[in-house]
């Protein structure tokens, strides 16, 4: 890529930083240039976020139908997979999978709920009374 061809598109990097790109200068030597972003990858990131929103609203539907517990919603909202949630809560993955079921969730003690709530950065009250 030539220095003059470095894209300077609007992106989520705005007000955060510009990124260093390795490019060829006019003499054909390597040099660096700062870029504000590239549209091709901006769309990739935007699409990834749309997918997260879609998964989060799917989780809402599941909870409304009584097919999942609020843990599923907050997992999606916080972009967590089982490894990440297990790491933050100290609860084994297979137990988390069980807690995704509404009946198992209803029987959880406040101390277990507190571990989930802390991982999601919400209160136990919010977790218990989540309205999908």
């Amino acid at each position: 890529m030539k220095k003059s061809e470095v894209p300077q598109d609007k992106s989520a990097l705005e007000n955060f930083t510009r990124e260093v790109c390795y490019v060829k200068n006019e003499d054909g030597q390597y040099d660096t240039e700062l870029s504000t972003g590239w549209e091709a990858k901006k769309v990739a990131l935007d699409e990834a976020w749309k997918e997260i929103e879609r998964r989060t609203s799917d989780a809402r539907e599941q909870i409304k139908k009584g097919a999942a517990s609020p843990i599923l919603y907050f997992m999606e909202e916080k972009l967590m997979d089982f490894t990440v949630l297990s790491g933050y809560t100290g609860i084994w993955k297979f137990r988390i999978k069980r807690h995704l079921k509404p009946n198992a969730f209803k029987r959880l003690s406040d101390s277990v709920l507190k571990r989930y709530a802390d991982a999601f950065e919400i209160s136990v009250h919010e977790l218990k009374n989540f309205k999908a």
């Binding site: 990097l13 490019v23 091709a40 699409e47 990834a48």
Partner: peptide
């Protein structure tokens, strides 16, 4: 499409120097 988007992000996002570290 989302899978392809993930490849592009791994390859071009901030931290790579562009072109999947190949320019670097």
């Amino acid at each position: 499409g989302l899978h392809l988007g993930q490849i592009v992000r791994m390859q071009e996002e901030i931290g790579t120097g562009g072109g999947g570290f190949r320019f670097l």
